[in-house]
Design a protein around this nucleic acid. Structure first.
Lengths: 223, 223, 223, 223
DNA sequence: GATGAATGAGGCTTCATTCAT
DNA sequence: TATGAATGAAGCCTCATTCAT
């Protein structure tokens, strides 16, 4: 009794996984609204009704796609950051893991950005809270790391949350630039390193930082 | 014949401006697909057909909205950066001008992000090339400035384009975080300064940079 | 300015009236669920969207059909009953007016019956309260008349409301029998008279009613 | 081989009976179209395919439900009317038996009414002829009784069929009023008696029926 | 030029029914 | 025989666009 049941369930899971894959790429290529359920059904070689029996509605299918991928991303990043002793290396790991994932899942990244866009907080939260929470938990981990770095005197004493968000945004920004250009993937390592370098040391060459403190002070008084 | 014509034209221009404003806020709030032409017509208190006689189609109205705003943004940033002698101050001006504009045009920023998403190069270019070119021209200006900075020995000898894109993305990233939180606008100056600081000097506190060159080297070898 | 406007409005009203007529006959022939909006649109020679721009939804169109007809029915019956002095004649007028209307609007009567069926009081009230109230107002008028008849010693001292409902149901019942048989309309007068006769005097021939009171008493004791 | 077969058949019969019960209540609550086969399957705790293997189609299941109940009704009424000598008592029995059944099977009554509505004689006969015939046979019995009553000088010399149909409709009408109001069942006896009283003696109080024959004559000449 | 009623293609979704296990 | 996943036809409704006034 358990054997056939198990096989059925296994097939069921495969179907779900397959439809999710098809849906992800289609949504990513066309966007949520331009994508039709019929398109997805045709690509996945299932009947229209089958898609509905699995996911209930277009909206729910879309959310499942996002949720699945965000979970993958968060899991990867969290796993990579764990068990790394040095604060600085943790940050590097974060950058590296996230950039790698986004690079390997460019189509998903489009969806992810689109979601950020439609953050109308009043009406129905586009992303289910579950997904946002998951992502936030990752940012919290990063914030903690930076916070530790600040206490250790490694990072500048700024708002750890702002730094974390900025770093998160910085990686998004770079990934974004990949979307436009069909750049060869060989440059990803270089880009990743560039981001790390910029984030950690800035764009300026440090001429004896203590020599021109006025420069720094001026910065904070501007405008 | 020219007098009434002039008044007519003036009114015509006002109508167009007004409809564009209404369209911008509606598109920004609802997104392109959720927005209907009827909505815009009702809000603008014009007949549906009138909107069409002015803009031809929903798509064209949308593009006109984007184009108008991007022109404003680019004009502002370009104007602000001009006539500033020091390379470093030009970069600061860029950051300041762009952040200010995005902050004062948050609703537009949503649209702008949404467009980035749908950059499907094969099918109909979502953003008319004209708009992309305009924006790119701004980035080129920035690249030039950074390039000059590199030659002057101010900036690190990295790919100037990458640095420019990163800076552009960094500002986007921070603006993005404003969308989520209904943050008080007082923090914008602080955020701007934080971005400038991070971009120029990085997150790390500089302990005698020459003392641990290995650290820097290691960075570039990381896989 | 008023002339063309008036003509437009007149046409608009005509269209609405025409669509309502088409919808009524179609709903009556096919029932609510079997009727499709496309059917109605085709029969009415309007585009599908036009029907929706007039009535919003299938449900609303349906309700408008019912409401319109119930209003007609109630108006007719109320008008006919007014200004008739004798109680007995009022009752006759009620029967006659209602039967005539149902006979001339057989297709509507089908809908009317169908509605009674789906009187699920918990979920969405199928008939808008407005319609029910209208109909109830007519029954109240009838109840008042009967009530007056009871006080005048004309009718038996029973619950006036029950008598009214019974009379209403009696007319429904007879109209119902018309639906099945495609009876010639000449018999309607005869049927109407039969109903009136039965309602007023019963089916029994009255043999000196005071002679066997036991018979009547027994009736009320039957379990 | 016959023993298990017998048990199997017994179980089979139980399953069918159970599904019919579930179907009846569901159809009655939701109507034919709003009811889905899945609903019935879930409520009955059978697989969807099982329902189909028993009843072939939704339509057939529905018809079986109606047929079963109409058979019950007709059997009850026929049984009750049999072996009662007096014509008047037979009529009373008819009223009593039918009203009791409808009261105890309100949910079925909804279906029954709905069917009357959709009596489109041209297209697929909604009610299978078998069911109509069964019901008609009951009405024939009633007609015979009334016919006998007329010959015995008990009932007025009207068309016996009309009287029978009217009485049938009268009971339907009253049952109908039960559907709307969630009346306490205690009043059913009273209602039954009221119907009997009205049917037999009419709503009027009989003042020396011989005194105003003109009134009666006038009735038949109206309109 | 301005208007808005009319259009109809096309999308989402439901659900009766089938069939391989 | 029982199961329920898979099917796809068909329905409701939206909305960009047109065109007669």
């Amino acid at each position: 009794m358990s054997e056939p049941n198990t096989r059925r369930k296994r097939e069921h899971q495969q179907h779900i996984k397959y439809i999710l894959d098809v849906a992800e790429s289609t949504f990513a290529e066309e966007g949520f609204f331009r994508t039709t359920m019929r398109q997805i059904a045709l690509k996945a070689e299932f009947a229209l009704g089958t898609i509905y029996s699995y996911f209930g509605s277009k909206r729910q299918l879309y959310e499942k796609v996002i949720e699945t991928k965000v979970n993958e991303l968060v899991s990867l990043v969290t796993r990579e950051m764990a068990d790394v002793p040095s604060v600085q290396d943790r940050v590097k790991k974060f950058i590296h893991a996230k950039m790698t994932f986004l690079c390997e899942n460019r189509s998903f990244f489009r969806l992810y950005l689109a979601e950020l866009d439609v953050s109308r907080p009043d009406v129905d939260h586009i992303l289910p809270k579950k997904v946002r929470d998951k992502y936030d938990s990752m940012l919290c981990d990063l914030t903690d790391v930076i916070w530790r770095g600040i206490r250790e005197g490694l990072f500048k004493p700024m708002d750890a949350k702002v730094i974390a968000k900025t770093l998160d945004g910085l990686t998004n920004a770079l990934a974004l630039s990949w979307l436009g250009s069909a750049k060869a993937s060989r440059s990803i390592k270089a880009d990743t390193n560039a981001v790390t370098e910029l984030f950690l040391h800035g764009a300026l060459i440090h001429q004896e930082p203590t020599q021109n403190p006025g420069n720094r002070k001026e910065l904070n008084n501007e405008s």
